[in-house]
């Protein structure tokens, strides 16, 4: 795992990618810092500057994640990694650790901004701390999505575009959720659509009817049991369900200065799920 980590890091710094990524963040945060803090003399760095820059993740994150696996496949170096005595999980973790490490280095550079503020005004350091922690967790979650997308294609550009669109989608999920009708039957209908989607996915990946049928029975059974146990659970259910995926909402608790353990757990499980999907996606290619 350490070998993969070191190789990735050296790869980032021998090419332009690491510098481009870091420079991108510094420029974006710098512009907002200039606008909020310098021109408008506002010292709430974590509450104002960091949330405003989040939308730029959609452009900056794919820069480093697009190549993670797509490049390996294109250059055929995945043959070296997958035939070496090292598990796919370790390969994925090594690579993921490298991107998060690059992000940490970037965040270290960004801490210069509140330090500059510190000389001219009063900075609320605990809020800055939670803000950066949230910023880090949000970035890591989006990088996990980007990594997963990178395993789906050989083409880096395709990987980058899909990642960017997906990141934007995750950002706007809460706006989408607000427009859902709140009645229980709509929630049930939506869950049914999800179950059908899962059934189709099962069929496409296994080409057998049985697994998708089992998934369908379990899914619809769970919906029915849920309805009989607590019908009120489905009130606003669709909105709740979609909101669960809204990674940006969770970040606001951090930028407001709260250290919310459930949000930390949420981000970690979000990362875990996407890294798991990444491992499965790489494994699946070997079975096809």
């Amino acid at each position: 795992m350490l070998a993969i980590f070191k190789r990735e890091m050296s790869g980032y710094f021998t090419s332009m990618i690491a510098y481009l990524f870091m420079a991108g963040f510094v420029v974006v945060v710098g512009i907002y810092f200039m606008f909020y803090c310098v021109i408008n003399s506002y010292t709430d760095f974590a509450g104002a500057v960091l949330p405003s820059t989040c939308i730029w993740f959609s452009l900056l994150i794919p820069i480093i994640t697009m190549r993670l696996w797509a490049e390996e496949r294109k250059q055929k170096t995945d043959q070296l990694l997958l035939t070496s005595p090292i598990s796919v999980t370790k390969i994925v973790l090594g690579k993921y650790l490298a991107v998060t490490c690059l992000f940490v280095i970037t965040l270290c550079v960004l801490t210069l901004f509140p330090f500059i503020l510190h000389f001219y005004g009063k900075v609320n350091w605990p809020t800055v701390g939670t803000g950066f922690l949230g910023y880090f967790l949000l970035g890591c979650s989006l990088m996990a999505i980007g990594f997963f997308i990178s395993t789906l294609t050989e083409n880096q550009i395709v990987s980058a575009v899909i990642s960017a669109v997906l990141v934007l989608m995750f950002f706007f999920l809460n706006n989408l959720a607000d427009s859902f009708p709140g009645r229980a039957r709509y929630s049930i209908m939506m869950l049914a659509v999800v179950v059908i989607g899962v059934m189709i996915l099962f069929y496409l990946s296994t080409k057998k009817y049985m697994p998708s049928l089992i998934a369908g029975v379990i899914g619809s059974g769970a919906i029915a049991i849920g309805y009989f146990v607590s019908p009120s659970m489905y009130e606003d259910g669709a909105a709740k369900f979609v909101n669960w995926f809204s990674v940006l909402d969770r970040f606001y608790t951090f930028s407001d200065g709260l250290l919310d353990v459930t949000s930390i757990v949420y981000y970690l499980s979000f990362i875990g799920v996407f890294l798991f999907l990444t491992v499965r996606s790489i494994e699946k290619k070997r079975w096809n």
Binding site: G11, T14, T77, Q79, L80
Partner: peptide, 24 residues
Amino acid sequence: PEIPPLYMDMTVVSYLKFVAELKG
């Protein structure tokens, strides 16, 4: 493999060291 799996941005010695580390 038919196409050697090489990292083009590495030097020969650093690449081989990486492979050695991969192979334990």
